[in-house]
C-alpha cells in the first residue's frame, strides 16, 4: 500500500503548490507555516480537490477519509445521535469517548466548536481506513481529547495516517516528517534521522534537540522523557 504524489501542482490566485513523494504505511507529520499549502495538499490527497497537473496514485488504498479543520463542514444531520449513526458508529461509546454522555438528542449547534470537533474526531478515527488525512486534529481540543486521539492513533496504527499540524505537544509516534514551504512539499525524512537535520523544527523541538541528544521521536512520550532528562 502506498500513496504516490507524482509531480502534482495546484494553483489558486497567485499561490502554486508543488508536491512529489511517496507515503508508505505509518504515521506522517506535515508541518509548515500558516498559508504554506498544508491544508490544500490535505484536500488534494483526501480527494476534495483535484490537482491541476500530475497524478495522485492510491496503490492498494481502497478506503480513505479526510478530516478538515472546520468540524462544521462534516455535519450531515441535526443531532448528535443521528450524526454518529451517519458514520455507521454505535452512539453510546462515541458519546462517552467524546465526553458528551447524555447529549445524544441535543442539536449539534448547541455544542461548542471544541465539543463538535471531539465528536467529529471520535466518529472518524474509530473507523478503519487505508488512508486517513487529519488536518490540524489537535487545534481547539482540550488535554483529555488530545490524549485520547494520540493514544488511539498509537494503538491503531493501520494504513497511512497523515497528520497536518504545527502543534507538536501531543503527537502520537511519528514515522516520517514532511514540510510545506511556500507551496512546496519537502521530505525531511524518517524521524530517526530527520530530527538532527530539521532546521525549521518548531521551537520546543529545537530547544530539546539543543539540550538532549537522545531524542529519538516526536511522540509526546518522547518529548516528556527528553524534558525530564534535561531537567534532571
Amino acid at each position: 500500500m502506498q500513496l504516490i504524489l507524482d509531480q502534482i501542482t495546484f494553483s489558486r490566485s497567485d499561490f502554486t503548490l508543488h508536491a512529489q513523494g511517496t507515503f508508505t504505511p505509518g504515521v506522517h507529520l506535515i508541518t509548515g507555516r500558516v498559508g504554506s499549502g498544508k491544508s490544500t495538499l490535505g484536500e488534494i490527497v483526501g480527494r476534495a480537490l483535484s490537482p491541476v497537473s500530475g497524478t495522485v496514485r492510491y496503490d492498494g488504498i481502497s478506503s480513505s477519509v479526510l478530516s478538515m479543520q472546520f468540524p462544521e463542514y462534516h455535519l450531515t444531520t441535526t443531532n448528535l445521535k443521528d450524526e454518529i449513526l451517519s458514520w455507521g458508529r454505535d452512539p453510546e461509546p462515541i458519546l462517552e469517548t467524546a465526553g458528551l454522555i447524555g447529549r445524544g438528542g441535543d442539536d449539534l449547534l448547541t455544542l461548542s466548536r471544541g465539543e463538535l470537533k471531539r465528536l467529529h474526531l471520535a466518529c472518524l478515527i474509530t473507523g478503519r481506513y487505508d488512508l486517513m488525512v487529519l488536518d490540524e486534529p489537535f487545534a481547539g481540543l482540550d488535554e483529555e481529547a488530545r490524549y485520547w486521539i494520540s493514544t488511539h492513533l498509537d494503538e491503531h496504527r493501520e494504513g497511512i495516517i497523515i497528520i497536518i499540524s504545527h502543534d507538536v505537544t501531543t503527537l502520537p509516534s511519528i514515522d516520517q516528517i514532511w514540510e510545506m514551504q511556500d507551496g512546496v512539499l519537502t521530505s525531511i525524512g524518517h524521524v530517526s534521522q530527520a530530527l538532527t537535520t530539521w532546521t525549521s523544527a518548531p521551537p520546543l523541538i529545537r530547544y530539546i534537540l539543543n539540550h538532549d541528544h537522545e531524542l529519538s521521536g516526536l511522540s509526546w512520550h518522547d518529548l516528556v522523557e527528553a524534558v525530564c532528562r534535561i531537567h534532571e
Binding site: 488535554e143 490524549y147 501531543t170 521551537p203 509526546w220 516528556v224 524534558v227 531537567h231
Partner: peptide, 17 residues
Amino acid sequence: HLTPLRLLRNPELWRAV
C-alpha cells in the same frame, strides 16, 4: 493518566524554550 502529558505544560519549560 494526564500527569505525564501535563509536564509539557510547565511554564518554566516554555520560558526556557
